[in-house]
């Protein structure tokens, strides 16, 4: 078995199993905890909790202007690499073909050259995020090993993907194998670190949204 076959086969299967099991374990482990039931009467005209939660999931996508002034870089750069990552994963034709082989359905992709540009921009944005984390006194203080591991395991699939798409640095099969292996590493780490925010943000925003909107408070 060559490296590419190993990456696409046992490695990806193992990584996916860890990803699915770990993600479920973490989500269930948190959501199965008993809630503190809020029995206070809601503010007159307050939406039901589920609606307050959903509203907040969307409301929190744009920071308040007053926080945007100081958090402009974090916000804009965050949007750049999140959208960039989403486009690279879900709008690149070879990825769509791969996902079709898994799920049986597909959707139109974007031109490869465009996705390559998006990938390069995403990589640059991730480098900027790291530079900011390493130089901001606040971020330096609050960062954990998880922040750097999560950064690396997000960055590697992007750069190996760019290398594979441009056939730079090694044989295509080798580059593709490294790309797939980097994704395996990403999937294995995902449930254990902050990458889980991809799922947790819904619950986190929603819980606060339900609490605040019940009180008639704005978020």
């Amino acid at each position: 078995m060559d490296l590419l076959a190993f990456a696409r086969g046992p490695a990806l299967t193992f990584a996916t199993a860890i990803f699915v099991a770990g993600t479920l374990w973490r989500l269930v482990g948190v959501l199965a905890l008993p809630p503190w039931r809020d029995l206070s009467p809601a503010r007159e005209g307050a939406p039901p909790n589920w609606l307050g939660a959903i509203e907040t999931v969307f409301r929190k996508m744009i920071p308040h202007k007053t926080f945007l002034k100081a958090g402009m870089f974090t916000t804009v750069n965050g949007y750049v690499f999140h959208i960039g990552l989403a486009l690279c994963v879900f709008a690149f034709a070879p990825h769509i073909l791969f996902l079709k082989s898994l799920f049986g359905f597909s959707w139109p992709g974007l031109p490869n050259g465009f996705i390559f540009g998006v990938g390069a921009l995403t990589a640059a944005s991730l480098v900027a995020a790291l530079a900011y984390r390493l130089t901001s006194p606040v971020l330096k203080l609050i960062s954990r090993a998880d922040d750097y591991v999560s950064w690396l395991l997000t960055f590697l699939p992007v750069v190996t993907g760019l290398a594979a798409a441009s056939h730079i640095g090694a044989r295509y099969e080798m580059l593709l194998a490294l790309h797939v292996l980097s994704i395996c590493a990403f999937l294995i780490w995902f449930p254990f670190g902050k990458l889980m925010h991809a799922f947790l943000f819904v619950f986190s925003r929603g819980a606060t949204g339900a609490r605040f909107r019940h009180r008639g408070a704005q978020l």
Partner: peptide, 22 residues
């Protein structure tokens, strides 16, 4: 004190530092 909501919130920080600005 770790009921469900507190636990969700303890799991969710991405260490972006936005809270400092507030």
């Amino acid at each position: 004190d770790f009921a469900r909501t507190a636990a969700i919130h303890m799991e969710s920080c991405v260490r972006c530092g936005m809270c400092a600005t507030a």
